[in-house]
Structure formats: structure tokens, C-alpha cells
Simulated scan of single mutants.
Amino acid sequence: MKKALVVDDSAFIRKIAKQILDNIGFEVTEARDGAHALEQCEIALPDLILLDWNMPVMSGLEFLHKLRKMPQGDQPQVVFCTTENTRDKIIAALEAGATEYIMKPFDQEIIRTKLEQIGMV
């Protein structure tokens, strides 16, 4: 079973994303911010990371830069799920190593479609 990490400071968003990924067949863990996510990735890298941009302690972009510098940190597929929708933000995320980008609000169909496009389902 593939493993996913949902990183968002909103417990509600984490719960919704977890339910969606559970339904798709992922084993899901959660992190409340980038620092917490980095700690989890140091223990075991997931196959997929759904990542928010704006979080306290460490932003999603900061987390992504640190993840990609870790041993095998280039392995997880990282999909930003955020309200940040400017061209500059999207380019910055992709240049930092994000695989895809989803705008909030999202639903199961949107997530499934993106995961199909990147070969995760």
C-alpha cells in the first residue's frame, strides 16, 4: 500500500484529504506544519505528500526545499494543495520540486485526477 502524508495547518483540511486518500487506497499520516512534516520524513519518506503553502513554523515551500535536499528526498511526489494561485507562486513551487499543484477547495475527483496524471493511482 502506498503511503501519503497530508501537511496542512487546518485539522479540517487534513481530515478531508485523509478521507479522500483513504478512499483511493493510501495509508495516510498527517502533519500540522512543514517542521512536523520534515520530522516525519526523516523517519520514513512517504510516496506522496499533499502540501499546503501557508503554515506557521515552516511554510510548504520551505519544507519542499529541505525535503529535496534530504537523502532520497527527490522520491516523494509532492502536490501542493493551496489557495495560492498566482503564476509566480506556481512557478516557484514547480521549480522547488513540486510534482503538481491543486487549488483549494478540492474534492475527491480533483485529487484522483491529479494522482492519475502523475501515475500514483
Score class of each variant (00 low, 15 high):
Q77G: 15
L50A: 02
A44Y: 13
K69W: 10
I118V: 14
G97Y: 11
R68C: 06
G60N: 02
K114P: 04
A37Q: 02
L64N: 05
Q72D: 15
E30L: 11
Q19F: 04
K69T: 14
E109T: 11
K3W: 12
T86Y: 00
A98S: 01
Q40G: 12
Q19R: 12
M1C: 09
I91Y: 10
E109A: 10
L38K: 07
I118F: 06
F80V: 10
I110P: 00
I102G: 00
Q77I: 15
F12I: 14
D47G: 14
L50H: 03
I118E: 02
L94Q: 14
E27C: 15
D33Y: 03
K2V: 11
R87E: 12
P46R: 12
C41M: 10
K15W: 10
H36I: 12
N85W: 02
D22S: 12
A93R: 04
L38H: 10
L61T: 05
V78R: 12
A31C: 04
K18L: 04
K2H: 14
N85C: 09
D52I: 06
H65K: 15
E100P: 02
V79F: 05
F106Y: 10
A37K: 00
V6K: 08
I102F: 01
L61R: 02
D74P: 13
E62V: 03
R32E: 14
M58I: 06
I13D: 00
T113A: 09
Q19S: 13
M1G: 12
M55D: 06
I102Q: 04
C41V: 01
T82S: 11
G73S: 15
F80M: 13
A35I: 05
A17H: 01
V121I: 12
S10F: 12
D74N: 15
T86A: 11
I102M: 07
V121N: 10
L21S: 01
K18H: 00
V78G: 10
C81N: 00
V7K: 07
K69N: 13
L64I: 07
G73L: 09
Q40L: 15
G25T: 09
I13H: 01
L61S: 04
I91C: 06
R32D: 09
D107P: 02
L48Y: 07
T99W: 05
Q108P: 07
L94H: 09
I49V: 14
I111F: 00
L61E: 02
G97Q: 03
S59H: 03
K2I: 13
V121Q: 08
I49M: 08
D8W: 01
L67R: 07
K18C: 03
A93H: 03
G34W: 06
G60T: 06
E39G: 02
E95C: 07
T29V: 09
E84R: 06
I13R: 05
Y101V: 11
T113L: 07
Q72H: 15
E62R: 00
I49C: 08
I43E: 15
D47K: 14
V7E: 09
A44S: 15
L94V: 04
I16F: 06
I13P: 08
F63P: 01
I102S: 07
E30M: 14
K2T: 11
F106Q: 10
T82L: 03
R14F: 06
T113S: 11
M120Y: 01
P46T: 09
V28W: 02
I24G: 03
E95Y: 05
E42I: 04
A37D: 04
L67T: 13
Q72I: 13
T99P: 09
